[in-house]
């Protein structure tokens, strides 16, 4: 179980010895007097999905821009596939594909032309270009529309086309910055299917940012970032357990005696609310049989509530991620934009 950044680093030192595909150490990025990224460190293993979670303005996009060699950090280091993001930007660029938050397609070109443009830009061999473009279009289910102008595409199709484009040069890491933002549920599901296939079949590492907690469930590992700092990291399960585990709710024929029996035999703290007993335990699914065995015939109904990543975020920051969206945090992004415009 890994919670604070400090603990995360300790685990990392004693962790696996296979080389991480992404390695970030003590990264700091300041824009004027705004610290967008404040001393973060993390590693990502090859072939996994890494989720970077946090409210708008937390520093997710800034981190991506540093990793993609678009920004140089104030201090700290970042490596992708063993290449230094600051010293070997060209090698890093060859190793990564990126789907930005806002569309970066040329709407006046066709889907096919956008991808061919990319193939030339990444110096793909001429005799392979057509094949790779067609394969990418087929993979993302866009082959039928290849000769349509991108301006006729829906939001979901554009996003899929960007993923297809990001794959043309066979990157080892694919960055997805809020990949499902503004997409309808069907398009989201479809996009997630493609992404899962990428890691499973092609060993592509996915680095994604999101502020949809439900989406982060698909990640192998997650880092939660808030105000430029990583406040927790681990697998989704670890993070959920770290905030106290599952909650079991039970209705019985006799709450008072059931409560006594459970407390005596299982040593759980049991509370009662709305004529329902509830207790917290680390592994809800293995606890339920024990509880039922203890109180036997008295059980009327049992339900298990697992913590969500939203609960994790709430517990760690004292606020829900959605609240953040509506409040002042957006102004961080605005300030950064304004700063960059001036310089």
């Amino acid at each position: 179980m890994i919670l604070s950044t400090g603990m995360y680093q300790r685990i990392k030192l004693s962790g696996t010895n296979s080389m991480p595909i992404i390695k970030v150490e003590n990264l700091i990025k300041r824009f004027g007097n705004i610290t967008a990224v404040n001393d973060i460190s993390f590693e990502v293993k090859e072939g996994t999905i890494f989720g970077f979670l946090g409210p708008n303005g937390a520093g997710k996009t800034t981190t991506i821009n540093v990793l993609c060699t678009l920004l140089s950090p104030t201090s700290g280091s970042a490596f992708i596939a063993g290449y230094d993001c600051m010293k070997e930007p060209s090698e890093v660029r060859k190793a990564i594909g990126i789907v930005f938050q806002d569309t970066t397609l040329d709407k006046d070109l066709t889907a096919y032309e956008n991808l061919i443009f990319h193939a030339y830009l990444y110096n793909v061999a001429k005799d392979e270009m057509k094949q790779r473009v067609d394969d990418a279009l087929r993979f993302l289910d866009l082959y039928e529309r290849k000769n349509d102008l991108v301006k006729k595409f829906s939001g979901g199709m554009k996003r899929r086309l960007e993923v297809a484009r990001g794959l043309i040069h066979r990157p080892r890491v694919l960055f997805l910055d809020e990949p499902t933002l503004g997409l309808d549920p069907q398009s989201r599901t479809k996009l997630w299917e493609f992404i899962a296939e990428l890691t499973e079949k092609h060993n592509v590492t996915i680095f994604m940012t999101t502020h949809y907690m439900e989406e982060a469930e698909v990640c192998d590992r997650i880092a939660i970032i808030d105000n430029g700092k990583i406040i927790a990291a681990g697998t989704p399960d670890e993070l959920k357990k770290a905030i106290g585990g599952d909650v079991i709710y039970i209705k019985t024929t006799d709450n008072a005696s059931a409560k006594k029996e459970i407390e005596r035999l299982l040593k759980f703290g049991v509370s009662e609310k709305d004529s329902e007993l509830f207790m917290t335990c680390a592994m809800g699914d293995t606890c339920i049989p024990e509880v039922i065995r203890t109180i036997g015939e008295k059980v009327l109904s049992v339900r298990l509530q697992r913590p969500t990543l939203n609960d994790v975020f709430l517990k760690l920051t004292g606020k829900t991620i959605r609240e953040e969206e509506a409040t002042g945090e957006d102004s961080v992004r605005e300030s950064i934009r304004a700063y960059r415009r001036r310089h």
């Binding site: 993609c68 678009l70 660029r93 930005f100 569309t103 970066t104 040329d106 443009f117």
Partner: peptide, 13 residues
Amino acid sequence: EFGFMKEILVAPV
């Protein structure tokens, strides 16, 4: 303005 420049800027060019 429309973002396409980013596609060019992150390429190994």
